[in-house]
Design a protein around this nucleic acid. Structure first.
Lengths: 206, 206, 206, 206
DNA sequence: TATGAATGAGGGTTCATTCAT
DNA sequence: AATGAATGAACCCTCATTCAT
């Protein structure tokens, strides 16, 4: 008469949480649906009530990671005033995410690997491209804003800087994974010091 | 007395070549030994005459990629004079390798993913760490040389710059994989223009 | 909430039954899990729901044979009075088991072979040794009982007789396997007639 | 002009010797032709110059064991006078063979296992049957001789005793394999003491 | 005659997915 | 809605045998 009332949204989230931890530890192919179900404390078959396939589940995990990152960045950038401050804030947020969620960082790495191989992973490469485009555009805007305001010199290739900054951000994620003793926070700052100096207008220009 | 005479070294190399192309397309787990054997034009069992396991074969592929990169860099750096030139040359070599071998770049990516998950891949994470340490040290040396010669300012964090540069290099590899339309060469140059400016001593210092 | 309900114990037993018949026909190495699954009328993968490996399955088959033999012997010996009667009953039970289960006797033979070669079959050799020790001890007890009661002479080497009797029992199993026309039952009796006569005290002793 | 002169007989024997040791350690299926060739110090393909198949090679090993046993028995029995002495000599020879060649005894065991399973091992079961028939007949003859000479009583089932004795001999081989601490020699003697007493005519018969 | 590189059929095992309950 | 027993395709690896040299 009255089927069991279940908060499917909530259960789905819990399932993703369990899956994230397993995928992070074992990688996509190394993870079995059975282990996910055990970690989540539910039956193996039940996963398929929430996700159509292992890939769907994995995609949800990646999606969680992406959204979490974007949210944190948006939140932090809301209150920033100057361009340089924004840039440094973006770097700080990314650093914090990497440090805080380092255990789950194998997931985006795995997605990179999946997107770069195989042709049937349209979904992953599309998401990745969108995310990158979005990040890059954000950075570009910051830089352009800085140019308008006179904070940054006008003769620099904004797109290039943006792309390379995003690259550097990805790179520190990678290195943090293999060598967790690296203090990416201070490195990132020292690096930005130099880079920002290179972006400042010449003093005598004015 | 007179068994079939075969150049095992050469055949091994050809096998690695075939394996590199399959692993690049399908990833480690997605690659079957059968497909490698077909691509190499040999029998499935023959692979095991040259490599003890699928993992061994994959490691050989990664090793090939690593050595190839290092060799090209060493070759190019031999004739460089100034520190900035060295830095730019290193960037150029990396860019060229990425462009030229973009189809095989999924392999280091896969290795990154393997090294970050699972604990039974000691070999891969060790190699990776060594390679990173070596790259970082090379860059550090260039920077320090520049400091000694007065090309670069003394108050910058050499280690931080080195780590972040290596990160940026890795990052462009990643982005190139997902968006092959990116002109990493020019981006890399523009980026270095800015960074190097930030590393130059203040004019009025002297 | 209501998964498929299966009597796993029962199904496990049925699986062992099927496996016993295949292993008997083809030997351990000659048996494929596929054939076992076909004989059992289930899918190949299903076997692994019940047994962790082929060796586990085989061990279960041997275990079944051992336990069955021991049970039958214990049952029959319960009602025996005299020592000679016990001895003859033990012989009869063994004979009956051999005749009745002759088709499955290759299994203990295979275990013998496995236990005598290779060092990674600890489990099998341990079980075998335990079983032999148990059999030998039982026989020894019968003989000693007979000595106490005056049925058997005191100057015989009880351990030696016990060991040799167990050996003879094994031996008839072997010969029955290769030549099924042998009437082991009557041979066993005739043999015991002679042996028992040799074990009786000299008439004039009293 | 003049092909290398090789003593094929000798080389064949050396090959069998190597094969015997490997088969004994690893069993038939567990032995690879490669390991045999290594142990024999020759090329893998060379084995096939001397034996048509792995089974042929194994058969040769078994044949070596059989012939060796028979030869030793024949040699020892040549000089025996009385029936009991012959019986005891046969037992002693068997015991010595088992002790001396215990490391190679897995081979007849393996043959038993092969002959009892599979239908395509005609050769092995035929040889086994012949060997058993021969052994049994020899024992029977000894017993009958003893009956004729008055050493043994006439009312015993000679065939039964012979079969059971052969069984007991096989059995001690088995037990020696699993428990090498057993002193089969003394056990065999003690056992024969009892059995022979049971075979002696009643004193007052005469 | 001797060799060992090459082969490919075969087998144990895993696991995403299905479906009866 | 939830479950877990069942499945079978897929895959890594072994190894007896062949054959070019």
């Amino acid at each position: 008469m009255c089927p069991k009332i279940v908060d499917k949204k909530l259960k789905r989230q819990q399932l993703v949480k369990a899956a994230v931890s397993v995928f992070s530890e074992r990688g996509f192919k190394g993870t079995s649906m059975e282990e996910v179900s055990l970690r989540a404390g539910i039956g193996k078959g039940t996963i398929y009530e929430y996700f159509g396939s292992k890939e769907d589940l994995f995609y949800a995990c990646f999606d969680w990671f992406m959204k979490m990152t974007i949210d944190q960045a948006a939140e932090a950038l809301k209150e920033c005033a100057g361009s340089e401050e924004k840039l440094r804030t973006a770097a700080r947020v990314w650093t914090e995410v990497v440090i805080r969620y380092i255990d789950f960082c194998p997931i985006p790495l795995e997605v990179w690997a999946m997107a770069s191989t195989g042709s049937d992973n349209e979904r992953f490469s599309t998401s990745l491209k969108e995310m990158y485009a979005s990040f890059r555009t954000s950075i570009e805007e910051m830089l352009r804003e800085g140019q308008s305001s006179g904070e940054f010199r006008r003769d620099m290739d904004v797109t290039a800087i943006a792309i390379m900054l995003v690259s550097a951000f990805d790179g520190v994620l990678l290195q943090s994974l293999f060598d967790r003793s690296i203090h990416i926070s201070s490195y990132m700052n020292s690096f930005l010091d130099v880079l920002v100096r290179g972006m400042k207008p010449d003093l005598f220009e004015g």
